[in-house]
């Protein structure tokens, strides 16, 4: 319990850094943050680079069957995207493309900056009838595999005992989706959701 709290405090302090940055008051904090991220990325061994993995799933089972959206970045810089719905006989969408190292580097930066690797899902709401989210990341020597329910809004986040941790997840997911939708949307010219 204490350790979780400590982690949360860590995450919070990172948040403070970010908000300082955004107010433009201190460029110093911003450079420290990037330096750390850079350090982490630079210290990656070739094998660790190759083992990088990220998977996100969100879905539920309802009137239109099992509807879900899932994407993953896997070894070889492969990005896979799946969007499944039977709503109005809509077809499932499955796309695969190989992204460049630049994209992977930015993706890792987003992950590290978010602080998600320091979080834990033990206090987050369990998946329920509303739906389920799964986030799995292998980065360097760490492997996280988090599950929780769908998060509708920040209001839902605040209700959680570990609201700061869940907030990290909440924002990271949006940033990841944003990146993936841009990549898939531009490459295949489809509009996800």
């Amino acid at each position: 319990m204490t350790s979780v709290n400590e982690q949360i405090t860590d995450a919070v302090s990172t948040d403070v850094d970010i908000s300082n940055e955004s107010s433009g008051s201190s460029t110093a904090t911003s450079s420290t943050t990037t330096a750390t991220t850079k350090d982490i990325l630079n210290s990656e061994t070739a094998k660790e680079k190759d083992d990088f993995y990220l998977r996100y799933y969100v879905g539920h089972k309802g009137k239109f069957g099992h509807e879900f959206l899932e994407f993953e970045f896997r070894s070889g810089n492969k990005l896979r995207y799946a969007n499944n719905s039977h709503y109005k006989n809509e077809n499932l969408i499955r796309k695969e493309v190989c992204v460049s190292d630049n994209v992977i580097k930015e993706l890792k930066k987003i992950i590290i900056d978010s602080g998600i690797m320091m979080e834990d899902d033990s206090l987050w709401p369990e998946p329920d009838v509303v739906g389920k989210q799964e986030l799995e990341i292998v980065l360097k020597d760490e492997h996280i595999s988090f599950t929780t329910t769908k998060i509708g809004s920040l209001m839902d986040v605040e209700k959680c005992e570990d609201s700061e941790g869940l907030k990290v997840m909440f924002y990271l997911i949006q940033d990841l989706k944003c990146l993936v939708f841009s990549l898939i949307g531009l490459h295949f010219k489809i509009k996800p959701i």
Binding site: Y57, D121, D141, E142, H143, S145, T147
Partner: peptide
């Protein structure tokens, strides 16, 4: 499979031990 033989030193999260979920 994922790590090609080497276990990640730190694993975390409910999904790690989930039998059914995924």
């Amino acid at each position: 499979d994922l790590r090609k033989g080497i276990f990640p030193s730190k694993t975390k999260g409910r999904g790690i031990n989930a039998t059914e979920s995924m």
